[in-house]
């Protein structure tokens, strides 16, 4: 397949990219030996590039389409005339910068109050609709092996209900965990431990999967794709 990537000094940007990515990958892996200058270099490049990435994405996805275009280039925002109302959030945003001037830093509380109020108001119905009720519905399953429900499914559903109730009992701190509440909270701990163990196992597998991905990159993209080609392999 012909190499369609642009060239710099006769080298494809793709080839340069693979070599740089390889260097950075190995630089990060070098931390497994111990902290060293090459790792620190890669680490600081990562910090700078990630922060820059965030700024660029916010600039192109929020500032330009929501503030600049409606004000100065309405035709790009599908508007017939400038939308001057966006000056209000623009001013609120500028008030954030009053933090740089201690005498006027109280002004920054207004935009913070606005964003906090908005997100708090949004959080209430959103949490009820996306977390609380769906999870409640999903817990209310048949626990008796009747009709289409086989005994194994019924047992699993029963365990699920018991697990949820006992886990909630563990988090109920308004009464001493003694008697029935103590037994329930103890069972709740067992369910929590299984949940934590499973989450840990999942996390390990996700990290191992990433590691395999990096080794695949080093082997296929760099070793086979670049080094072997360079030496005519």
């Amino acid at each position: 397949m012909p190499d369609a990537a642009p060239q710099i000094f006769g080298l494809s940007t793709e080839v340069i990219g693979v070599w740089i990515a390889t260097f950075l990958t190995l630089a990060i892996f070098s931390f497994l030996y111990r902290d060293n200058p090459v790792y620190k270099l890669a680490e600081h490049i990562f910090v700078g590039v990630s922060a820059g990435y965030g700024v660029v994405i916010v600039y192109h996805e929020a500032v330009i389409p929501l503030l600049i275009n409606p004000l100065f280039r309405p035709e790009l925002a599908d508007l017939e005339s400038p939308n001057y109302i966006v000056i209000i959030p623009g001013l609120l945003g500028l008030m954030m910068f009053s933090r740089f001037f201690p005498r006027y830093d109280w002004l920054s509380r207004w935009p913070i109050a606005f964003v906090m109020g908005l997100s708090s108001g949004l959080a209430i119905p959103a949490t009820v609709q996306t977390n609380l009720l769906p999870q409640l519905y999903a817990t209310l399953n048949p626990i008796l092996p009747l009709g289409d429900i086989d005994p194994w499914t019924a047992t699993s559903n029963f365990l699920l209900v018991v697990g949820v109730i006992c886990t909630l009992a563990y988090f109920y701190f308004s009464r001493e965990h003694a008697g029935a509440l103590g037994v329930a909270s103890r069972i709740g701990i067992f369910f929590l431990m299984v949940a934590f163990g499973a989450s840990f196992g999942n996390t390990v597998m996700a990290r191992v999967s990433l590691l395999i991905g990096r080794f695949q990159f080093l082997y296929y993209d760099w070793w086979q794709g670049q080094v072997m080609r360079l030496f005519g392999g």
Partner: peptide
Amino acid sequence: VMNVPTVAGKRGIIFGVSLGVIATA
């Protein structure tokens, strides 16, 4: 394990977190 005991434990946590989010909001 993922679908029954893990979900039960996590669901208990989610209920607690959700109520906490609503109360804080």
